[in-house]
């Protein structure tokens, strides 16, 4: 290593400069994305290397502890169920392989739909203005004041069993307000900006102005807002599932926690039953938080530090 021309300090300096030039090389962003990708990879690889049928009731012994632990009955963990089993004999590893990506899927789909609605309504309100703006703004403001969980509980009880997609659609109805307001505000200020006027002078069509002049400048905001609404969606979805609502037959992290609580896992000291899904939820949220912090530094150069 002695023949390398750069000292360690110089290398570190060069790395910092590179990071400053290319803000996407942000360690927070990389770590956050890494955590989420790990969850997805676990879901994909797990289906190949582990038996997903183990999520069905009675596919193994009941209430087995993870490897290296003993349960109250003195049984120790076995290789065929490395993370233990729940009160219905379902394998915990199979449960999280199926459940964690499901939870992430609901969050991503809900906020993707919510963001699309938000972008559409925000641009309409900001660009068209007048009565359209009034209607959209009042609607968004009213929706912000309504607690989504309350409405969703009523909805879900009425529907009974729902699919993951249906659940995502329902949640999407409650995460479009903040992107709408954010985009509306940005569009309103951008509409006055010199470069939009210049584009108008250049004979640009409305579509060009919206998508080629305005939207690129909104990208950092959109990303940030997207991540924030994924977080909200997952919190809402898990909240419903822990209450026993949402999909009844499909394993999700929230549903597993609900069953654990329902079966008295806390009293019986079956910590792995509720603990492992909680840990995974924690990882998802930390990943999202890191991405959000990273994006903040990308879109706001003042937060970037050179030293």
């Amino acid at each position: 290593m002695t023949d390398t021309p750069l000292t360690r300090a110089e290398k570190r300096q060069a790395k910092r400069i590179r990071r400053f030039d290319n803000p996407w090389l942000n360690p927070k962003l990389i770590w956050g994305a890494g955590l989420l990708i790990a969850i997805v990879a676990m879901g994909l690889l797990g289906r190949v290397f582990w038996d997903p049928d183990l999520v069905f009731t009675g596919s193994a012994q009941l209430k087995l502890p993870p490897l290296g632990f003993e349960n109250l009955r003195g049984q120790s963990g076995i290789m065929s169920n490395p993370l233990g089993t729940d009160g219905g004999g379902r394998d915990m590893l199979a449960l999280i392989i199926i459940g964690a990506p499901n939870t992430l899927f609901v969050g991503l789909l809900a906020s993707l739909i919510g963001m699309s609605i938000g972008i559409f309504l925000g641009f309409s309100a900001g660009f068209v203005g007048g009565r359209t703006d009034d209607v959209i703004r009042v609607l968004a403001d009213v929706m912000i004041t309504i607690p989504p969980l309350l409405i969703l509980v009523v909805f879900q009880t009425a529907y009974g069993d729902v699919s993951l997609t249906m659940m995502a659609l329902l949640i999407a109805g409650f995460v479009w307000q903040s992107p709408t307001r954010l985009i509306r505000a940005q569009v309103l200020s951008m509409k006055q900006s010199g470069y939009v006027q210049m584009a108008q002078l250049s004979g640009a069509s409305t579509g060009h102005i919206m998508f080629r002049e305005m939207l690129p400048n909104l990208v950092p905001y959109l990303f940030g807002s997207f991540i924030a609404s994924v977080t909200t969606s997952i919190v809402t979805a898990v909240g419903l599932e822990v209450l026993g609502l949402g999909p009844q037959r499909i394993p999700t992290l929230g549903r597993t926690i609900y069953e654990a609580i329902n079966a008295g896992a806390l009293i019986q000291n079956l910590w792995w039953w509720w603990g492992i899904p909680t840990l995974l939820l924690g990882i998802i949220f930390i990943g999202l938080l890191l991405i959000n912090l990273g994006l903040d530094e990308v879109s706001n150069p003042r937060l970037r530090r050179l030293s």
Partner: peptide, 23 residues
């Protein structure tokens, strides 16, 4: 037109030749 504020007249997302090339 030529406007007052030269700082606002260019889209920060593009290189300046965009403002000349596009029209």
């Amino acid at each position: 037109a030529v406007f007052q504020d030269p700082y606002a007249c260019f889209n920060p997302f593009y290189r300046v030749n965009h403002a000349l090339k596009f029209p």
